[in-house]
Design a protein around this nucleic acid. Structure first.
Length: 505
RNA sequence: GGCUCGGUAGCUCAGCGGUAGAGCAGGGGACUCAUAAGCCCUUGGUCGUAGGUUCGAGUCCUACCCGAGCCA
C-alpha cells in the first residue's frame, strides 16, 4: 500500500499577458509546501498555463500571431521566471497539450452520457472580455458589471452543466467540512452563495474557436471548464488510474480569492459528476498590492519580477513573501519592506550568525569542526522540526519562520553569553570546542529547516559548512539524528546575505 | 440594500473573558567573533466610536463609523 503523495497545485496561469509578482507568490508558496512534503514522503507539485479562450486569441491577433504561436512564445517566460525563483515543480501543464485536451473531451462525454451535461438554449447578454453571461438585472448601466465593457446580446444553443443538481450536496459538504475552504472569510462567502442556490451554466462557446472542440458537435468548451480539469489531466485521470489515485484527492489547491468560486463550487460538483472526490483543502490567498492598489498592467504599477530577483535575490524575495504577508489577506508590499527584511532578518540575524560562526571557527580552529560537547541550546529546540512542519502544512508560514528565528536569536545570544573570544584567550579549549560545535550544528539544522524557503542560499550555507556533497533535503528527523562530523572542513566565504544600502524612495 | 472579513504602540501584526504583547522604527548602554552586524536596557497604546452583559471585556452582545471584499 503506497502512501498517497502530497499533491499541491497552483492555478494555471492565464497567459494573456506577462507574469507579475503575484504569480511568483502563489507559486513560491506551493514550492515551499512541496519541498517540505518531499522531506517526509512522496509529493507532487503541479503548475502550468491556461491557454484557451477569447482573450488569448485576441491578444495573439493583436500581436499578429496565431494563438498557438503566441502561447508557445510566452510559456518559456513563465518557466524561466519560476526557475529564477528556484521553484521546483514536478510538472508544468499547458491546456493546449494533447494529454489535457483528451481528458477534457472525455470528461465532457462522460457527463453528457450521465445527463449532467445537456443541450439547452441560451439567450442573453454576454461580455466577450470576461467570457461571462450576464442577467439583464446584473448589468451596470448596460455594461459588464466586472469590467465595464460593452456587452453583446447573443442567442445560441449551448451545452449546460447541471450544477443545480449538486446544490444540496455542496451545501451538505460545506456544512460537514467547515475547514475545507480557507480562509474562513472565503468559506463564509461561498456558503452564502450556496444558500442562495446555484444554477446550471453554459460550458460551450460558439462565437470563436480557440478552445477544445466539443466532441461530436460544434463550438468549443468554455475555458473555465477546460482549465479546471488540468488538475486531474496532469496526473492521468482515465489514462492511468494507479497514478491518478496515488495523487488524488489533492492535499491543497492554492487559488487567488477571485477564483475561489470556480474551485469550491463548480469544481467539486464536476468531480462528483465523474465519480471523484473534492480536494482536501482549497486555500484562497489574498492579492499583493502596491500601496493598496491591485497590481495590473493597466494601473502601470506592475513590477518586473525578474528585476526584483536581481535586485534583492530570489531567496530574499521568497523569504519576504512568506514571512511578511499575512497569508490569506491582501498584502501591500514595498521595496522598502523587502530591504528591511533582507537586512534585518537575513543579513543581521541569520547571515551574520553564519558569518561570525565560520569566522571564529577559521580564526580559532583553522576552519575545522571541533569535537562536540554538550549542546544545551539545541536541546531546547528539539521540537522545532515538528513545530515547523505543522505550521507549514497548516499554511502558517509566518509562524514557521518565526519559530526558526527563535533559534537564530537564541544562538546569537549564546555567543554573547559564552564569549568564545574570551574562552580562546583564556585557553579553555574544550569549552570553546563544544560551543563552536554547537553553533555549527545549529547552522546545519537551520539550513535544513529553511531550505524549503530559501533553497539556493541554504544550499550555499550547506556548502560552507563543508557538507555540500550530502543531501540537505533528507527527512528532518533522521537528518537531525546525524549531526555534523568533527573534522569537517568549513568555508568562510563572503556574507550569505550582503546588506543592501538604502533602497530608492 | 443584504452579507463577510478587518479596524490593538509610528509601521507590520499576535492576543479573543482575568493586571495590554512581539518584530521593526526611535532613545540609551556595555562589548568585539562578525555584514558599524550581534547583545542588554528603554520611550511608546484610554485595543475604531457609543451603549450593554459580567465580579471582571481588545476578548461576548447591540448600534454606528471607517477600510477591503462577496452577493443583489
Amino acid at each position: 500500500m503506497q502512501q498517497r503523495a502530497y499533491y499541491v497545485t497552483t492555478p494555471i496561469y492565464y497567459i494573456s499577458g506577462n507574469p507579475h509578482i503575484g504569480h511568483v507568490y502563489t507559486t513560491v508558496v506551493a514550492d515551499v509546501l512541496a519541498r517540505t512534503a518531499r522531506t517526509a514522503g512522496p509529493a507532487f507539485f503541479l503548475t502550468g498555463t491556461d491557454e484557451h479562450g477569447q482573450k488569448v486569441a485576441n491578444a495573439a491577433t493583436a500581436a499578429g500571431k496565431l494563438p498557438q504561436e503566441w502561447c508557445d512564445d510566452l510559456v518559456p517566460r513563465w518557466q524561466s521566471l519560476f526557475a529564477a525563483y528556484h521553484v521546483a515543480y514536478d510538472d508544468f501543464i499547458r491546456t493546449t497539450q494533447p494529454r489535457h485536451e483528451r481528458v477534457v473531451q472525455r470528461v465532457f462525454e462522460t457527463l453528457r452520457e450521465r445527463g449532467d451535461v445537456y443541450l439547452g438554449t441560451y439567450e442573453g447578454w454576454y461580455c466577450v472580455f470576461d467570457e461571462t453571461f450576464w442577467l439583464e438585472s446584473k448589468l451596470a448601466g448596460g455594461k459588464c458589471p466586472t469590467c465595464g465593457r460593452e456587452v453583446q446580446w447573443i442567442s445560441e444553443d449551448d451545452w449546460f452543466f447541471a450544477l443545480s443538481k449538486y446544490g444540496p450536496r455542496l451545501l451538505e459538504y460545506f456544512r460537514a467540512h467547515p475547514d475545507w475552504v480557507r480562509p474562513k472569510s472565503v468559506y463564509n462567502e461561498m456558503m452564502a452563495l450556496l444558500e442562495e442556490g446555484v444554477e446550471d451554466f453554459s460550458i460551450s462557446r460558439t462565437n470563436f474557436d480557440w478552445g477544445i472542440p466539443i466532441p461530436g458537435g460544434s463550438g468549443v468548451i468554455y475555458v473555465w471548464f477546460d482549465a479546471l480539469l488540468n488538475y486531474i489531466s496532469a496526473i492521468g485521470w482515465s489514462v492511468d488510474d494507479d497514478r491518478f489515485h496515488a495523487y488524488w484527492p489533492a492535499a491543497v489547491q492554492l487559488v487567488g480569492k477571485e477564483i475561489a468560486r470556480f474551485h469550491t463550487i463548480i469544481w467539486p460538483a464536476v468531480l462528483w459528476a465523474i465519480g471523484e472526490a473534492p480536494p482536501e483543502l482549497v486555500f484562497a490567498h489574498g492579492w499583493i498590492t502596491v500601496e493598496g492598489q491591485k497590481i495590473g498592467k493597466s494601473l502601470g504599477n506592475a513590477v518586473d519580477p525578474f528585476a526584483l530577483a536581481d535586485r534583492f535575490g530570489a531567496d530574499s524575495l521568497r523569504y519576504f513573501l512568506l514571512r511578511e504577508a499575512p497569508f490569506g489577506s491582501d498584502f501591500s508590499y514595498s521595496e522598502e519592506k523587502i530591504a528591511q527584511r533582507h537586512n534585518n532578518d537575513l543579513g543581521n540575524d541569520l547571515g551574520n550568525l553564519a558569518h561570525r560562526t565560520l569566522s571564529m571557527l577559521q580564526r580559532y580552529r583553522e576552519g575545522v569542526v571541533p569535537a562536540p560537547g554538550a549542546t544545551p541550546v539545541l536541546a531546547r529546540f528539539a521540537e522545532l522540526p515538528q513545530h515547523m512542519r505543522t505550521a507549514i502544512f497548516d499554511l502558517r508560514f509566518r509562524d514557521a519562520l518565526e519559530s526558526a528565528w527563535d533559534l537564530v536569536t537564541t544562538l546569537n545570544r549564546a555567543v554573547e553569553e559564552r564569549k568564545p573570544w574570551a574562552l580562546h584567550k583564556e585557553e579553555r579549549g574544550a569549552e570553546l570546542d563544544a560551543f563552536l560545535y554547537e553553533l555549527c550544528e545549529g547552522l546545519r539544522r537551520l539550513a535544513i529547516l529553511l531550505h524549503p524557503f530559501m533553497p539556493e542560499r541554504m544550499q550555499e550555507l550547506w556548502r560552507r559548512l563543508g557538507i555540500g556533497e550530502t543531501r540537505i533535503d533528507d527527512a528532518w528527523e533522521s537528518a537531525f539524528a546525524r549531526p555534523l562530523a568533527p573534522g569537517t572542513h568549513t568555508i568562510l566565504g563572503d556574507p550569505l546575505f550582503p546588506r543592501l544600502d538604502l533602497v530608492g524612495k
